[in-house]
Nucleic acid binder design. Structure first.
Lengths: 199, 199, 199, 199
DNA sequence: TATGAATGAGCCTTCATTCAT
DNA sequence: AATGAATGAAGGCTCATTCAT
């Protein structure tokens, strides 16, 4: 039942955010007594943080796991990285949306996450950075900071899900068109980045 | 007092969103009786929509007002456009955040906005599109759809404000560093786009 | 405008009763500022009492105006009386309904009405009473108190409008059937009373 | 406490109707927190309907349970029926008043009741109808439709409670006089009906 | 582990009313 | 005669939370 509650709560928080979701509805959807939510998680905030932390770390690790296929060219690696990020976000856009919206809410949670994050520059990131420098030195890639590159990549990928509802209003699309558009932007982003990195 | 309420409500909605802001607090901050909120705006939703619509249109028009300085080169025009957008967003990042989060909430409002939007491809957009095509034909810019270009520009600009709280957690910054970082990303985005458009 | 308010208020009170009607809606329907209601009538209760008193007295006088056609037989007079009462009630059943429901509400109003009522046994009532006694003595009508006769008559007539909504639920009727039913009950009541008065 | 609330609510609804009764006052009288009312019944309307339905059906069944004493004459049966109805109404006149006033309010409730009602012409009603026909054929009762007879009976009985407050204003009575009057009208109604049914 | 009872705080909203203009 | 501004009271309802069982 604890797991049922967790997954039900996750869905509800993704649907309606922290304010919009109520323990009452969580319990109703889980088919149990309302107080059980508090029995397991003590407070709504607690329940939320549990879920938020999990989701955040999953996403963050997904972002930080740079393709480890060693026999690829740098270009292919970068392509793979962009596409992986894009797919990660597209899979359930509500997750990055929730993170973005509620991140600031519980300073304590932020503190907790901070410690988990800063301690992990990760081996792969270091490797990727080194490769980037090599390419720059070789002259196959224009000079650019890894950090800036990553921010640009993530920006291009993630911004779409924020703008999607508005884009749909301006350019109404049916489901098929929407899927096509999302696929198009995926390759467009790859292209845009690669073109920008030309020396 | 109606104006006071409007501006107080605007601030509160920006701070806490629709759910988080209460008419009670709006009234308290405006220093008046709570019912006055309803006297002027009848419902919270009404008040919200009024504010939202104004903010949305201001931002949208800001986005759509492509620099009209005719004697600039295309590159300068694009630069100016990117920087203008960036500044527009940075001025109060909570506005695009609010729009993104609450856009879906009131279908009626969306409908209203839809009609205002679709009717406005605007002269300047057309002019800009034409210039882009000319540059492509001249060979000074690689082939790209205007729509894709704009989405990429907006993505690069807007994503930063969504990611900022998280970035600040990963790389703690004081106010000065933050300002510097924001300024840096401004020029970085311009650079990133211009580099990508090279033929 | 005062008259407009009065008639609008009358309709609304008839529709929704004292509690259900609001000065706000009265003003809205009358197309004027809400405070005007209070400007003219000071309080909602005041407005209500004004209307109630008028309606009550009109109805009461309608009930008390026994047919004055002198050249009719007693039977015809009674028939005419019953039918007149029935029509009076049927014309706008909401009036007796309102009176019944709200009569107890404002003791002061009751007091006022009391004084107006008790002072009016009325000439015609006396005449009718005398005629009844004559008929009883003649042996053409069975012995009965006038008061009881009147209560029975009024009961038969008035109860229908109270029961109508429930009857319509038990025996669904369209508009035509309803009218026919009401007409049928009219003659049925006359018949029922006359039959009961046989010596 | 749920039962306490139910009975307190019942009293309050009878006293003040749906609009006039507030959950706050119900709770206060029951000596509990106001939210408890909503905890048990979710909405005021819900609570009201629960009570209304019960009261309505009790009354309706009371009305429909025609005396089943087989060894009585038709006259005695009818007398018994009239007196039973009269007593049923007099016991708590506020019940039929409430039903009359609020019956129309909640269409859903009406629908529910409808289904319960129409399916119940009831054995006894059929038996009574048959007996009436037999009496008519025998010539001991004048021709009359059962439906009309019943409506007249109910009218005579029920109208009194609607008119009582007004009658009391016209003819002030103390408690004893009032009781006497009510008893008098009971036998008067029996008499009035029986006299009317003479062949 | 699970539940029913109960509560205080708060929310949005409507209402009748008053006051100054 | 008429209006806009403002208010206190109250209403129905939801919520997160606690407690006893």
């Amino acid at each position: 039942m604890e797991d049922t509650l967790l997954s039900v709560a996750e869905q509800l928080f993704l649907e309606k955010g922290f304010d919009g979701a109520s323990t009452t509805e969580i319990a109703k959807r889980a088919g149990c007594n309302q107080t059980l939510v508090h029995y397991y998680f003590r407070t709504k905030q607690n329940l939320f943080c549990t879920i938020f932390e999990k989701k955040f770390l999953t996403l963050y690790q997904g972002f930080m796991s740079f393709g480890n296929m060693d026999n690829l060219t740098f270009t292919d690696k970068l392509t793979y990285l962009i596409e992986t990020h894009y797919d990660l976000i597209s899979k359930d856009p509500r997750i990055p949306l929730l993170i973005t919206n509620e991140f600031h809410r519980f300073p304590l949670l932020v503190e907790t996450l901070k410690q988990r994050l800063t301690s992990k520059p990760t081996e792969m990131a270091v490797a990727f950075e080194r490769e980037l420098q090599e390419e720059i030195i070789k002259g196959t890639v224009r000079p650019i900071e890894l950090k800036d590159l990553l921010i640009s990549v993530v920006s291009l990928n993630i911004a779409l899900i924020f703008m999607m509802p508005i884009l749909e209003t301006i350019y109404p699309m049916d489901e098929i068109q929407k899927k096509a558009f999302i696929a198009h932007r995926r390759s467009e982003n790859v292209d845009f980045v690669l073109k920008s990195l030309r020396p």
